[in-house]
Computed example of a mutant assay.
Amino acid sequence: MSDAAPNSTPPAPPAGAKAQPSQRKLFWLKVALLLGLLGLLVFGIASIELEPNLSHLDVTLLTGSERGHYRAIGDRLSGVAKEQKGTLRVTSTQGTIENVERLVTHAKSPTVQFALAQDGLAWSEEQRKTLRLIARLPSRETVFFIAHKERAPQLRRLADLEGKTIGIGPAGSGTAQLAGQVYSGAGLESLKPKLVRLPLDQQLAQLKEQKLDLGVFVMFEDAPLVRDALRGEDLVMISFPELAALAGRESFLRLGEIPLGHYDPVADKPAQATPVLQVDTLVLGDGSASHSDTVALLRLLEETY
């Protein structure tokens, strides 16, 4: 018998020999894991939305009255957001003044983040600290001066407003505030006109009855209320040669023009191209929205306009 130490290394299996059962199990386990990883990778790629959308947008926008143009803007934005899987809730209000007050009152609230507002308001210190300017819409609001056709020839210059009765919209409205600012900024106090605050439908009625000499309306140029009024027989739009000077005095005012026949090209209403004052429409925020929601809203505005 040999005294050599036994060889501890098992001999290699001969070529062509079958793998042991444990080795076969390990092989198929690796195959299963690899297939599982490939499946997860395919699922992940399939779940990625290659086309950008607004699915992360989830905010509320304060607008205006149910039949007003601010509400129409909100509904349009909401529709575009929905098409791209985003959510923009639209809330009707009385307009600019209420919108600003609600944003300030509910600052940092998760229920209200943005609002539409008319430029040119006299902002309080609290409003300046709380509100954020998000955007200016490309479509501006127009300052209309409307009178009865029999009174209009008497109103050719601003000086002709001396002692006249002027409707400036509902109390607390953006129209009333803007009219008050223009009135003060232009130094019209010396003319001592009587400023009357009325709901817009009553203001139109009193213009037709000639109980008012002039009515001021601030809205989009194709708003149904103005369009229907100027297509009628009683009321006309007037202008003043001093409007350019007023626009130069106030940074928020712009000088625009309503073309001849814009409201009725057959009857020529207005009868000539008419200079008008215009103000921007603002999108305001209270700072409570996330950065991603704010960016998404800006993208929504860009795609809509």
Rank of each mutant, 00 (worst) to 15 (best):
T175K: 08
Q127T: 10
E189T: 07
K108E: 14
G187W: 08
T175M: 07
G180W: 01
R151H: 14
R156P: 00
R156G: 15
R157N: 12
I166N: 08
A179D: 07
Q113E: 15
D119E: 15
G86V: 08
R151K: 15
T105G: 02
T96R: 04
T130Y: 08
Q113H: 11
G120V: 08
K82I: 00
H106Y: 15
T111S: 09
A159V: 09
Q154S: 15
K85W: 00
Q113K: 12
K129Q: 14
A179R: 09
K108P: 00
A115T: 01
G180M: 05
L188D: 04
E150H: 13
E141F: 05
L155Y: 06
E98D: 09
H106V: 03
P138S: 11
G185P: 01
F145C: 00
A152N: 05
L188N: 06
A171E: 12
R140T: 06
A171T: 09
R89K: 13
E125Q: 11
F145W: 14
G95V: 02
A122S: 10
Q154T: 15
G185R: 09
S184G: 01
A115H: 03
A115Y: 01
G187P: 09
A115W: 02
V143D: 11
Q84A: 13
H106T: 10
R89P: 05
Q118H: 03
P153V: 13
I166A: 10
L155V: 10
A159R: 14
K82E: 14
L158G: 08
Q181G: 12
F114V: 09
L155R: 00
G86S: 03
A186I: 06
T175S: 11
S109Y: 07
R140W: 05
H106P: 00
K82Y: 04
V143T: 10
E141R: 13
K108H: 15
F144R: 04
T93N: 04
G169N: 08
L191V: 11
I168Y: 04
V90K: 00
E141S: 13
E189A: 13
Q94G: 01
G169V: 04
L191E: 11
G167Q: 07
L191A: 06
R140E: 12
T111E: 14
L155F: 06
I146R: 05
V112I: 15
H148R: 00
A147M: 09
S173R: 07
T130N: 10
I134K: 03
R140F: 00
R156T: 15
R151F: 06
A135R: 04
R102P: 00
T111M: 09
T111C: 00
E141Q: 14
A176C: 02
L116P: 03
R140D: 10
R132E: 15
G185M: 00
G180D: 02
P153Q: 12
R89W: 02
P153W: 12
G180S: 07
L161R: 05
I168E: 04
E125A: 13
Q94K: 05
P153T: 08
E101S: 09
